[in-house]
């Protein structure tokens, strides 16, 4: 099939960007979206133009690197998938596709479709861990049973891939879904209890500092999240936060 692409091109963080039109023929429905961009880039290189820059690595929906805003949706049409898992069979001959970077104040553009999501790393650094050193002398893994229900819920929260689609989908560019997924994982496990209070307070304050917006419960994030991270996590984090702020002084 043939497609018309409108792609955001931006030379660098401080340059101004614009949408540029491209045409691409011979797109196979079995191609992934990123493979389609590979083909476009091969075309551009052979013409002596600069290829389109975008983040990607695993190409199987797990590393969280890919991050395109396709036809107005983070990771494009289709639910429960990342951009790299989107296949061209979701489009039809003659379609026009708009491809932009994830947009948020806290995710500045690096180049073209690539953005800087290091704010997420800094949020994790502020408390997204259990403070346990490597020792070889921690207690036996089976010494602390965990209810299967809780273990499974903690796992579900922990499957967040840190892609940032939740932020990109939110009109406030809020990072609540991402942060609450981490907070929830630990709050559901006995290992997370000792630091629960500090964790939620510190992570929320770092989130605010990074310039993410407030959560107004629109729920767009849950819809666009490729890993199905549920809004329940936000509710759980709000409870944790409230508990922590009531007892912290």
């Amino acid at each position: 099939m043939k497609l018309n692409l409108k792609i955001w091109r931006q030379k660098g963080p401080n340059a101004s960007g614009k949408m540029v039109d491209y045409q691409i023929d011979e797109v196979s429905p079995d191609m992934s979206f990123l493979e389609m961009l590979d083909v476009l880039n091969e075309q551009l290189i052979s013409k002596g133009d600069e290829p389109v820059v975008f983040d990607h690595d695993c190409r199987e929906g797990i590393c969280g690197a890919c991050s395109l805003h396709i036809n107005g949706e983070p990771h494009g049409p289709g639910r429960g998938i990342t951009t790299c898992q989107l296949h061209m069979r979701s489009f039809k001959d003659g379609d026009t596709i708009y491809i932009e970077p994830f947009r948020a104040k806290a995710f500045p553009v690096v180049k073209d479709l690539m953005v800087d999501r290091s704010a997420f790393d800094r949020i994790i650094q502020s408390g997204g861990y259990v403070s346990v050193n490597t020792s070889g002398n921690t207690i036996d893994a089976n010494a602390t049973p965990v209810r299967k229900e809780n273990a499974d819920a903690a796992f579900d929260a922990a499957t967040c891939i840190g892609c940032g689609a939740c932020v990109a989908s939110c009109k406030n560019a809020s990072a609540m879904l991402f942060v609450s997924a981490k907070v929830s994982q630990f709050s559901l496990l006995p290992q997370g209890q000792p630091e629960a209070k500090e964790r939620v307070m510190n992570m929320v304050s770092q989130m605010d500092e990074e310039g993410f917006g407030n959560c107004t419960n629109t729920g767009a994030c849950e819809v666009e999240c490729p890993k199905g991270i549920s809004l329940e996590n936000i509710a759980r984090m709000n409870r944790e936060y409230l508990k922590a702020s009531l007892t912290s002084k």
């Binding site: 259990v130 893994a141 049973p145």
Partner: peptide
Amino acid sequence: IDQCVAQGVPFAREYGGLL
């Protein structure tokens, strides 16, 4: 395994709560 569980890695568990 002990180290990872201590870090909060959510391994699969059986109904009895063990790994």
